[in-house]
């Protein structure tokens, strides 16, 4: 596995531009939590995951489950840029008849492996998929992205107990620890404390990534997770909600917000500057 940091960072910028374009075409959407996972998606789709855009249902592919299903726009941006479907489809986000609904849906979108949208459920789906692989002695990986607010859901912890007991070491979970949920910060609403310590206490291998929006750090965490042969790994990505676009980074609540054409132009300028600086 080769990692090209510059290329991956550029890809992350393109994901951000595309997801904002999709949301702007509808006028509003889940901006903050989409931007915060752009970097992990850029890493996963830069050679880490075994997938084939020409054959989205390839039998021995790695699975990716976006349990925080509302980050659909980020997934759609990554998939469109990788060629799973035409980029023009991004402009149909959340419109009647679209193949790109707000929350990820495996029956509608090429490249979406499991359907999510009720928080916590993706965790069990991913564990089940990894369990099936283990039973059949397949060597592929299942990647799971959880939100930090999502950790409020009891089902997440049920699934973790199951994954640990069944020794699902090829299940690699990312927690998008951006510190904010819909109504405020995770600390204000129902304190999570030390997220990595919680997963470690449940028996997981854990890796904390100081800057969860840094592709190099994310990549190194995945390499480390793949050394583990007994426990499922949880990689806690300390991210910023709205990452990469200062307007949203500074916003108190950018979970779901409007994106005007003007906002889009401003964001593109910032993102293009970032790309040129790489």
């Amino acid at each position: 596995m080769n990692f090209d940091r510059i290329q991956t960072e550029r890809f992350a910028v393109e994901i951000r531009k595309s997801l904002l374009r999709a949301i702007a075409s509808k006028g509003s959407g889940h901006v903050g939590g989409s931007l915060s996972i752009a970097d992990v998606l850029a890493v996963l789709y830069s050679g880490v995951m075994k997938v084939d855009p020409a054959d989205p249902r390839m039998e021995d592919r790695d699975y990716l489950v976006i349990s925080k299903g509302h980050a659909g726009p980020a997934m759609y941006a990554a998939l469109a840029l990788k060629g799973f479907f035409p980029q023009e489809a991004l402009d149909t986000l959340n419109r009647g008849g679209t193949m790109l609904p707000s929350h990820t849906d495996r029956l509608k979108t090429p490249g979406i492996d499991l359907t999510t949208g009720s928080l916590g459920q993706g965790a069990s789906l991913a564990a089940g998929a990894a369990f099936a692989d283990k039973l059949d002695c397949r060597d592929n990986y299942t990647y799971l992205i959880l939100g930090d607010g999502e950790l409020n859901e009891g089902q997440v912890w049920e699934s973790v107990m199951f994954a640990v007991h069944q020794k699902l070491s090829r299940l690699i979970t990312f927690v998008d620890a951006n510190g904010k949920q819909l109504d405020g910060t995770t600390d204000e609403i129902c304190t999570l404390g030390d997220i990595a310590a919680k997963f470690a206490a449940f028996g997981c291998n854990t890796v904390a990534v100081e800057d969860g929006n840094d592709t190099e750090q994310i990549y190194q965490a995945i390499i480390s997770a793949k050394q583990e042969t007994q426990k499922p790994t949880v990689i806690v990505l300390h991210t910023v909600k709205g990452a990469g676009v200062s307007r949203y980074e500074k916003m108190k609540n950018c979970h779901s917000c409007g994106v005007t054409e003007e906002d889009l132009k401003e964001a593109y300028k910032e993102l293009d500057d970032r790309k040129r600086s790489l």
Binding site: S124, L125, M161
Partner: peptide, 23 residues
């Protein structure tokens, strides 16, 4: 492996079953 007592966790049981069924 083929017959599994997952413990007292019906929500995870149904979710995990759905996940493995897709495989």
């Amino acid at each position: 492996g083929q017959a599994v007592n997952v413990g007292i966790m019906e929500a995870n049981m149904v979710g995990a079953a759905a996940g493995m069924s897709v495989k």
